[in-house]
Amino acid sequence: MSRNALVIGISTYSYERLNNLTAPGRDAEAVAQLLEKYGDFKVTRLPAVKDKHNNTIRVGKKTKVTLTQLEDAIVQLFKPNGKPPDTALLYFSGHGLRKSKGIQEGFLATSDVNPDMGSWGLSLQWLRRLLQDSEVRQQIIILDCCYAGEVLNVAEADPGERGKGRDRCFIAASRAFELAYEEIGSNHSVLTSALILGLEPSQERWVTNYTLVDLLTQQRNAFPQRPIFSNSGEPINLTRRWTAATKQSAASAKSICPYKGLAYFDCTEEDARYFYGRTALTDQLLEKVRIGNFLAVLGASGSGKSSVVRAGLLYQLQLGRRLSGSESRQIKILQPGEHPLNSLALTFVDSGLSDIERANQLAQAEDLIQKGSEG
């Protein structure tokens, strides 16, 4: 299985309004070494310089990178002339720019940017189109720069294609309107400090894109900005400790029958363990929920609507591994029954209340519902 990575750290800029940086070179080199040591990645560095002391290649801290160089390197990663890799990882550390003229656009700043002359750098819209057209099955994009979240605001060229034979991970240092910061008392940025910790495997088990975002979620309060992420498809293996494999005894599953007949799979960990074959559809539903306020799932009786909504969409929202912050969303499940308005009111009654408190809350809910749209 071929695994390629392009690791970019741009520290030097010609445009007078962009300060030269110190963290990107260190950030990129630290990530590159982890991917080589623990991930079996073939890593390309940009800018690449030869260390005079040990004759090794490292990320240059003062070397400039032009827009043409950056575009060519990214195209070579995701759309090479020959056979594409099975897994491709893009990491960028440097300045990010945001253009607000009619529409919001995000850019990765190269050393030769000059917004006054209309040169903003590499367009994140261009990057999304390239990824959509790429034949690489597993794609990881990590952007450690200001306004990096803009890459998630670009609509897919074909949202329905999402997840079909493709696994994808986006990690952005900040939301589309936010700056990204270096960590006080550290040689690295805030996001990359967390990434270094997460990519360093602690045991003989793969670090995946899902376990990596688990760590970012746990450390959310430590960030001055809010990193965001989006995962689709199956987990992507990133790093692990390559030592002698240990034998682990698997629990016998002979007494477990995962087939539920006409019953649905629910939004519980137990049911989700045995819910297979709907990854692509679940990804489509998550994308629809991310960009819109209303979603209807329609289909013939027995086709699996309840299962994909509960064990697919709702379970992934509760888990919070595919969409940033989705675990904090409030979820209410309603089955209309013979008295749909009463069932709707009951849905909003808190559990664990005394009978009197439940009756009072139910009466308030029913009163609001009877007021129609105003209620």
Rank of each mutant, 00 (worst) to 15 (best):
S134R: 02
A172T: 01
E161P: 11
Y181Q: 13
Y210Q: 10
R98N: 09
L122N: 09
G102Y: 13
D112Q: 04
G165T: 01
I184Y: 02
L215D: 12
E105R: 02
Q104I: 13
Q225S: 08
R162T: 01
L216D: 07
T192P: 15
D116E: 06
G121Y: 03
Q218P: 14
D144Y: 02
G163T: 00
E161I: 07
L216C: 06
G198W: 01
D133F: 07
A194L: 14
L216S: 09
V190W: 09
S174N: 01
I103L: 15
I228C: 15
N153Y: 00
L195T: 10
W126T: 14
S232V: 11
K101S: 15
A172Q: 02
L122E: 07
D144G: 04
L122S: 10
F229A: 08
R128E: 01
R205Y: 08
A173F: 05
L97H: 00
Q139M: 07
E150Y: 07
P224W: 03
L199I: 06
R220L: 14
A157W: 00
L215S: 07
L215Q: 12
N231A: 02
H188A: 04
I141G: 08
Q132Y: 02
P227H: 01
S123M: 08
L238A: 11
N231M: 00
K101P: 13
F177L: 15
I140S: 00
Q138P: 11
P224I: 00
N221Q: 13
D144V: 06
N237C: 00
E178T: 04
R137A: 10
A222Y: 09
G149C: 01
I103A: 15
S186Q: 10
A173N: 06
P224E: 07
F229E: 03
V207R: 10
P201R: 07
N221V: 06
Q203T: 13
E200L: 09
L216T: 01
Q225R: 05
R240Y: 06
P227G: 00
G102E: 14
R168D: 02
N153L: 11
T239M: 08
H188D: 12
S230V: 04
E182L: 00
G233E: 06
I103S: 14
S134W: 00
V190E: 15
F223W: 11
E105V: 05
Q219W: 05
W206F: 01
G160S: 15
V113L: 06
P159W: 11
E156N: 10
F107R: 11
R166A: 12
L195A: 06
A148M: 07
P115S: 07
L212Q: 12
I140G: 07
R129C: 03
V136C: 04
A194Y: 04
G118C: 13
A176G: 08
